[in-house]
Write a protein that binds this DNA or RNA. Structure first.
Lengths: 75, 75
DNA sequence: ATGTAGACTCGCGTCGACG
DNA sequence: GCGTCGACGCGAGTCTACA
């Protein structure tokens, strides 16, 4: 699977788990609401800092998030 | 420490370990030689796909690379 | 609360060239 | 083999607005 698509899927899970809307997550990450949507629909590629910012808000270590992406992508 | 700076440092180690020059690494990654230099000097932020591509060439799992970045960055 | 669209700024990633 | 510079296309990330 494409990396961006894998990331979108991976992103959505812990967000829902944290009980956050895209809007609330975006607010806490200091990112745009529409951008979170774009990420989840795999229409944007996050940079490494964006990954770290989102991970921190979701209280997940970035490498755990990446590990999930690896699984879906099929390393 | 800044994330991009941490990544630059983390990147250099396994590259040297693999006995690759920036030039050779860039070639295998299908990236530009100057861009690898920019990354190591923390003047560019890699996207998630770039991280995956470089990791694959360096035969490191992306999440291992990220874990090193976390350490330097100080999660 | 989310998807989408347009328009915008700025940074990623490329390329050629020089030291 | 690497750092740096200028220039470039294109994509990251923002903002507004409508459904």
């Amino acid at each position: 699977m494409e990396i961006s698509k894998a990331f979108g899927i991976v992103l959505r899970k812990p967000r829902k788990l944290a009980g956050l809307s895209q809007e609330e997550l975006a607010l806490q990450c200091d990112l745009d609401r529409t951008y979170i949507g774009l990420l989840e629909r795999a229409q944007r590629q996050p940079s490494i800092t964006t990954i770290f910012i989102i991970s921190e808000v979701l209280k997940i270590k970035p490498h755990e998030l990446i590990k999930e992406v690896e699984k879906l992508h099929g390393i």
